[in-house]
């Protein structure tokens, strides 16, 4: 589903990703862990098309399409969706408009008609309930005045409504208390599907207790230094990252 090959990315003149390789198949949940500054957020930002990142070599393909050739909105319409570490506040834009516009953009890209209003409301209300969010959220401006936990829940709500093919979550667990963590994890688990890939970028193993990954990668200094199963996440939690660094240097 997602294939990243020998990816080199430069930000403001310095190389952050230095030949990263990653293959993610439909139905799999991958976690990318690593110390600060390893390039974790850079990877998801480049896949989502954020400006300011220069891909100097390598490739990203999604379902056979060259992602780097696609506009930001095209990537989302094709089913690549990124949940942000720091969701942006958008004063004045109601959540309901964002959800409806985004869903219809996706449908339009697939050649489908716009969703009828009653069907849309039904869908959104179900997912709101799943995320334990009050319907009044719909009339509030996107993320404005939301707590950290509310912002993250809102990111997952967008995923639940938009049902992307590939879910990327950048440090979705940062700033969450235990209860919010549980709700967010439930939301992610409900997105598990044989047709969908999930890529979780995280600093801590905490979230992975609730969302069990199939594959765990350790990203160190711009490259995947080690790949393993969920046990690797526990090892990292117990032993830190230094041993991986030493191993990969050896």
């Amino acid at each position: 589903m997602l294939e990243v090959k020998d990816l080199h990315v430069t930000v403001e003149g310095s190389e952050i990703l230095k030949g990263l390789n990653l293959t993610l198949k439909a139905g799999e949940v991958h976690a990318i862990m690593g110390p600060n500054g390893a390039g974790k957020s850079t990877l998801s930002a480049v896949i989502a098309g954020k400006e300011g990142y220069e891909v100097t070599s390598g490739s990203i393909t999604f379902k056979g399409r060259d992602v780097l050739e696609m506009d930001v909105e095209e990537r989302a319409q094709a089913g690549l969706l990124l949940g942000f570490q720091y969701p942006v506040e958008i004063p004045g834009v109601k959540n309901i408009y964002l959800l409806k516009a985004a869903l219809n953009a996706q449908r339009k890209a697939r050649g489908e008609d716009e969703i009828p209003a009653p069907e849309f409301m039904k869908l959104v209300k179900e997912q709101l309930a799943a995320m334990k969010m009050d319907p009044s959220f719909l009339q509030r401006a996107v993320n404005e005045g939301f707590s950290g936990g509310e912002k993250k829940r809102n990111e997952i709500l967008q995923m639940l409504v938009l049902q992307p093919k590939l879910v990327m979550l950048d440090e979705i667990d940062s700033g969450l208390d235990i209860d919010a963590m549980r709700v967010v994890a439930q939301g992610i688990n409900s997105l598990r599907d044989p047709e969908r890939g999930i890529l979780i970028v995280t600093h801590y193993q905490r979230l992975l207790e609730h969302v069990e990954p199939d594959v765990v990668h350790v990203l160190v200094d711009g490259r995947i230094a080690k790949t393993g199963d969920k046990q690797l996440a526990y090892d990292l939690e117990a032993r830190g990252y230094d041993w991986v660094l030493e191993e990969s240097a050896a």
């Binding site: 400006e51 909105e73 958008i90 834009v93 953009a105 996706q106």
Partner: peptide
């Protein structure tokens, strides 16, 4: 940008804002 990452094209994003 945030709106575009949700699949909303640039013109519509500007309209929404």
């Amino acid at each position: 940008y945030a709106l575009r990452t949700r699949g909303i094209d640039e013109q519509m994003a500007r309209g929404l804002l």
